[in-house]
């Protein structure tokens, strides 16, 4: 299994390097950062020369990409962020990833619990009113654009609920850390916004996975030998229905940890999403590359973990 994991990781490295070059090159195509520096009113010639020298802006893109890659590979140095007052990239990315995780982890737990509960409920009550309600809501969750949901929740909780009831239980923007209660109250709305699409998609998926298993022969056997229904559903059916969820959860968790440009921007959450937008518009190549690298590595890592877990939970799968 370890040999398999190592081989998989080795196969991804060249892809990651190639992808990093393509992104470096594309970002370079957006425009020349020197134009922005030259237009800067407070910069004098020496500051301009220093920045051009620091970021090697007078060199071809391949060279700049090469020295960026070399610094990471040999010194673990991700460079400095032009748009953040030349602060080093690494601490920025680490802080931002932590902030993103603060809403990504609760969102992930919400998704997992609700998606499984809704799938089981929908499947054991197939074609009932509640099944249709859940199906309709899942479709709505998938189709509702994140930014519409986010804006709607802000108005609902920030304005309407306050007008009607005179209370404002949740913060509608920003991260508030004065107390634990404040922190919880400021993550509630971003978490709901982040979760909706995933809950919709996963409960659709889970419903069909669960239905397929409920109609399988071994479930009939379990019922026939007189097991209580609760045991049949939760021990025999659900456990098997969860196996295909492993891949989906890994991909979704990686996607959540990668930061949400939309949700975090709407709720002014200081995560990876908004700073990525800042980096892009500021042509801050080192910061862009740093974020892309971290996010891609998380995606690759969780994908691999999912494949390995698959083998643990489904003994029919063997890696060699």
């Amino acid at each position: 299994m370890f040999a398999y994991a190592a081989r998989r990781l080795m196969a991804t490295i060249p892809l990651l390097i190639l992808a990093s070059f393509l992104i470096f090159w594309t970002v370079n195509e957006i425009g020349d950062p020197r134009d922005k520096l030259a237009a800067c009113a407070t910069c004098d010639q020496s500051a301009y020369d220093r920045l051009v020298d620091l970021y090697e802006l007078d060199k071809p893109v391949v060279i700049r990409w090469g020295s960026w890659l070399g610094n990471i590979a040999f010194h673990g140095d991700m460079g400095t962020a032009l748009s953040q007052g030349e602060d080093p990239v690494k601490p920025i990315v680490i802080t931002r990833t932590k902030n993103t995780a603060m809403i990504a982890i609760p969102a992930f737990l919400t998704i997992v619990i609700l998606a499984v509960a809704l799938s089981v409920y929908s499947a054991i009550r197939q074609y009932s009113l509640s099944d249709y309600t859940i199906t309709a809501l899942s479709f709505a969750g998938i189709a509702l654009p994140t930014f519409v949901l986010g804006l709607f929740l802000q108005v609902l909780w920030g304005i309407w609920i306050q007008d009607w009831l005179g209370i404002k239980p949740f913060y509608v923007t920003g991260k508030h850390t004065a107390s634990f209660g404040d922190l919880v109250s400021s993550i509630v709305l971003p978490v709901i916004t982040l979760s909706a699409v995933f809950i919709g998609a996963e409960s659709r998926f889970g419903r069909s996975a669960m239905l397929e298993i409920i109609n399988a022969d071994y479930i009939r056997t379990a019922r026939a030998k007189g097991l209580p229904e609760r045991r049949v559903i939760f021990k025999h059916a659900l456990r098997n229905a969860l196996i295909p969820f492993i891949t989906i959860w890994a991909l979704d968790f990686a996607a959540l940890l990668g930061g949400s440009v939309i949700t975090e921007s709407i709720f002014s959450w200081p995560g990876l999403g908004p700073i990525f937008l800042t980096a892009i518009t500021g042509q801050d190549i080192h910061l862009i590359m740093g974020i892309v690298l971290v996010v891609s590595m998380m995606a690759i890592g969780f994908n691999l973990i999912a494949d390995l877990l698959y083998g643990v939970f489904d003994p029919r799968i063997r890696y060699d």
Partner: peptide
């Protein structure tokens, strides 16, 4: 390998 929205934004 690279996240979708990142590619699209670039």
């Amino acid at each position: 390998v690279v996240p979708g929205l990142v590619v699209l934004i670039v």
